[in-house]
Design a protein around this nucleic acid. Structure first.
Length: 574
DNA sequence: GAGTTTGAAACT
DNA sequence: CAGTTTCAAACTC
């Protein structure tokens, strides 16, 4: 990928870096924050992962593999604190990738620097660093952290063609609240750039700033959705630069064009998490969708529904389930899943969430230790640990058709599945039962007993309803705060999160984050962090941070256990 | 493109 | 919680 020269230059330019480091401003900033470098890397990432939804399981699919590939690649450079960290990153795949990339091009100094640099990039436009602005913005920047960094970098790296737009988006995200003067415009763009999560997701794909509350589902969903795209508008989101901040302010046309461009480039799809890809690609016809879907875990294409009776306000509707508005390509009838009916959409979402808090969460969860099982064919490339949360219930398809959510998502069946005659090409239930897949279950079980003990070879309780997991955005917040020591930034994040949740109704999985939107969520759940996490209950897990990440860790080596919600619920209150 | 099959979502 | 119905995607022809 071509990186916009400008950015690269900046990032790589040692001189500027030096200047920055030596400058009074730099020192000042450093002295200010507790947030500093050290944790900045890990935490930021974690943050990102935590806060943002992850890309959905989307990643589990072949796409995933590619992602992973890049991830690994970059990871090297980026000094992974631990496996967990990696996983955490995982959640924010898109961002992560970006980040990694960014890291790649930068001296291993810390994300802080990275941020600065990135920031610098943004500002660079104006050439000389505006120190005052920098300082004033520093907080924001910090808040964004990895996300921004990564995204920013990603943006730049990812699509040269879009660099302009992306950088713009980044800049906006970092520097100013993205205000969409025109809702319609915004919405129009939404599909591609979801507001909630989407924004983030979208951003990731588009390099827009990541938002915090993602639609996990959309993202995560992957399977079907993964579209993270355009999500419902966070009402009020816009005002926060942070969050959604960065909603790319594109009108639909622009988006379309952008998408087209991307498609032409042929990159987006592969590199983007399925969800993302969906968002962007889905403008096409249903057939196209299928094709894409194949590529991805389940579908990589954008969502396009064909609802006749649900008004696109039920989970039957893929768009709705993915947290995106129906758009042109949809063939739905009496569709209410449109920006015009935002209130209705939100209300409905809330209602559904009240019934099932995880309704919009990513359906596929990836294990922290997920390792790609590389096989001869693409199918075998699924993440070993990716699994459908609830599992499927196939009776006749043998889990060999897309009727099967597991199969559709590109993940193997697990003990959570109640399928009959499972022949899932990505992993059969019986086979996976003892594998890492059930990690979640294992974790839960383990958690109940203590922590890092080895898992019992005993079968875990079958199908733990994820839905039962208590996840609340509030919890999320707490978690974040805890993790970050309640730093201002974390607070920011939390707040952002909340807002998004509120406005969105909370969602991913990905929710998700999605899936994609989901994966972030998933990652949260299974992320590196989570790896270290022991589940206390289905909803919360005890988390012990890796040494590197855990500032609270006692010298004695005692682990600090935190209770972390598995999923951030989209709804703020609950 | 129409019709069928399938299984998730929703409902009772 | 289980059984049934509704729904829309996936699939077949």
């Amino acid at each position: 990928m071509d990186t916009p020269p400008k950015n690269v230059t900046q990032i790589e330019n040692p001189i500027s870096k030096l200047k920055l480091e030596n400058s009074p401003v730099f020192n000042y900033i450093n002295s200010l924050s507790p947030i500093k470098p050290v944790r900045s890397l890990p935490i930021a990432q974690t943050f990102g992962s935590l806060s943002y939804s992850s890309p959905p399981s989307v990643f589990a699919s072949p796409h995933v593999s590619s992602h992973k590939g890049s991830r690994f690649k970059s990871d090297h450079n980026h000094v992974p604190a631990s496996v967990g960290e990696e996983e955490a990153l995982h959640e924010t795949e898109p961002p992560q990738i970006l980040q990694n990339e960014c890291t790649t091009t930068t001296p291993p100094r810390g994300e802080t620097d990275l941020l600065k640099m990135c920031d610098g990039n943004v500002k660079q436009k104006s050439e000389t660093p505006d120190w005052d602005a920098m300082i004033s913005d520093s907080s924001d920047i910090l808040i964004f952290d990895s996300m921004n960094d990564s995204e920013a970098s990603t943006c730049f790296l990812e699509r040269p063609s879009d660099s302009k737009t992306r950088s713009l988006g980044v800049a906006k995200s970092t520097l100013e609240p993205v205000i969409n003067s025109n809702d319609d415009l915004r919405r129009g763009g939404r599909r591609r750039c979801l507001d909630f999560e989407q924004t983030s997701v979208a951003s990731s794909s588009r390099c827009v700033v990541p938002s915090i509350g993602l639609h996990f589902n959309a993202i995560a969903l992957s399977s079907k959705d993964n579209n993270a795209g355009n999500e419902y508008p966070l009402s009020g989101n816009t005002e926060l630069g942070l969050q959604g901040s960065i909603t790319p302010v594109l009108n639909s046309q622009d988006n379309v064009r952008e998408n087209e461009t991307r498609e032409d480039a042929g990159q987006g799809v592969e590199e983007c998490p399925k969800s993302l890809a969906l968002v962007e690609l889905n403008q096409s016809s249903p057939k196209k969708k299928r094709q894409f879907g194949q590529a991805g875990e389940g579908e990589s294409s954008c969502k396009r529904c064909n609802c006749k009776r649900s008004k696109c306000l039920k989970l039957y509707c893929e768009c709705f389930a993915a947290g995106v508005y129906c758009i042109g390509p949809c063939s739905c009838v009496d569709c209410l899943n449109k920006p015009i009916h935002e209130d209705t959409v939100m209300a409905t979402r809330k209602q559904i969430e009240s019934r099932n808090p995880l309704a919009f969460a990513p359906k596929v969860i990836r294990n922290s230790d997920s390792i790609m099982e590389v096989g001869d064919d693409a199918k075998s490339k699924t993440p070993a640990s990716a699994r459908h949360k609830r599992g499927c219930n196939c009776k006749k398809s043998n889990c060999l058709k897309k009727y099967c959510e597991c199969y559709q998502s590109g993940v193997g069946c697990s003990i959570n599945c109640r399928c009959e005659g499972c022949k899932n090409a990505f992993g059969r239930k019986d086979v996976s039962a003892g594998s890492s897949f059930t990690s979640m279950d294992k974790e839960n079980e383990t958690s109940s007993r203590g922590r890092t003990e080895k898992q019992p070879s005993t079968p875990m309780p079958l199908r733990q309803p994820l839905a039962q997991l208590p996840i609340s955005s509030n919890n999320m917040l707490l978690t974040h705060q805890h993790l970050h020591g309640a730093s201002g930034s974390s607070l920011h994040m939390s707040q952002s999160f909340r807002r998004q949740d509120m406005s969105l109704m909370s969602h991913s999985k990905i929710g998700t984050i999605t899936e994609e939107r989901a994966e972030n969520i998933e990652n949260l759940i299974e992320s590196p962090m989570t790896n270290m996490i022991n589940a206390v209950s289905p909803n919360s897990k005890r988390v012990s941070l890796p040494m590197e990440l855990s500032p609270w860790r006692r010298n004695g080596g005692r682990k600090l256990l935190l209770s972390i919600p598995t999923f951030p619920s989209l709804t703020p209150h609950h």
